[in-house]
Amino acid sequence: MAMKSLRRASLLLALPLLSGCATLAQLGIQAPQFSVDNSQQPQLRLVGPGFGHPQGGAALRLYARVRNPNPIGLTLARLAGGLQLEGRSAAQVDFPLGVPLQANGDVMVPLDITVNFNDIPGLADVILRAATGQSIRYALNGTVGVDAGVLGQPTFGPMNLLSGSARVTR
């Protein structure tokens, strides 16, 4: 008899949870929030001609501060989108990440992006600016996917993830 009452009470407690988790939106799950991590400077290096990039390229490391505004932990599973340099499309990115985000917490995530100059017409002035030590404006736009466990794997965006400027480091 006590076991039957316990099962009935468990079922009554679980019903609101089961009916309330139909979608992540109903639970108020929000997208992770991205910002430039000001404790690190973005690093831009010019890369000389070589195999796979006969006209050279650039290696850009950005440091993102990713905040989880949700009361539950998530995993930042993927970031996909495009990088612009001085307002021009420069590279496509697709990062499988697997970064755990604690509830209401934040973490620094380094993002390494390679720009291949022979694939990108119209970046001559960007190359010149970089070579002469001037700062280069960047913007990373895209979508992010999270893994919320049993609650699903939603994707958020497209949105502006990061923007700022970088100088060539030697």
Rank of each mutant, 00 (worst) to 15 (best):
A14K: 12
A14Y: 12
A14W: 14
L15V: 15
L15S: 11
L15T: 15
L17S: 09
L18Q: 04
L18F: 04
L18A: 15
S19R: 14
S19V: 15
S19P: 00
G20R: 05
C21G: 14
T23R: 01
T23H: 01
T23Y: 01
L24Q: 15
Q26E: 14
L27E: 03
L27R: 02
G28V: 08
I29D: 06
I29K: 00
Q30V: 07
Q30R: 15
A31D: 11
A31M: 05
P32N: 09
F34D: 02
V36F: 05
V36W: 08
V36Q: 14
D37V: 07
N38I: 07
N38F: 01
S39V: 03
Q40C: 08
Q40D: 02
Q40A: 12
Q41R: 15
Q41S: 13
P42R: 04
P42A: 10
Q43A: 12
Q43K: 11
L44T: 10
L44P: 05
L44G: 13
L46A: 12
L46E: 12
V47M: 10
G48F: 06
G48T: 13
P49V: 06
P49A: 15
G50A: 12
F51D: 14
H53D: 00
H53A: 05
P54R: 10
Q55A: 13
G57C: 08
G57W: 04
A58L: 10
A58D: 00
A59K: 04
A59S: 14
A59V: 05
L60F: 09
R61L: 12
R61W: 04
Y63Q: 11
Y63P: 03
Y63T: 05
R65Q: 05
R65N: 05
V66T: 09
V66G: 03
V66S: 02
V66N: 01
V66L: 01
V66R: 01
V66W: 02
R67P: 08
R67N: 07
N68E: 12
N68T: 11
P69G: 09
P69T: 09
P69Q: 04
N70Q: 04
I72L: 15
G73E: 12
L74Y: 00
T75S: 06
T75G: 04
T75L: 10
L76D: 01
R78P: 06
R78C: 03
L79K: 00
A80G: 08
A80Q: 13
A80W: 04
A80P: 03
A80T: 11
G81E: 04
G82V: 10
L83T: 01
E86V: 06
G87E: 13
G87L: 10
G87Y: 09
G87V: 07
R88Y: 06
S89V: 09
S89A: 13
S89T: 13
A90N: 10
Q92T: 12
Q92P: 02
V93W: 05
F95A: 07
L97R: 04
V99R: 03
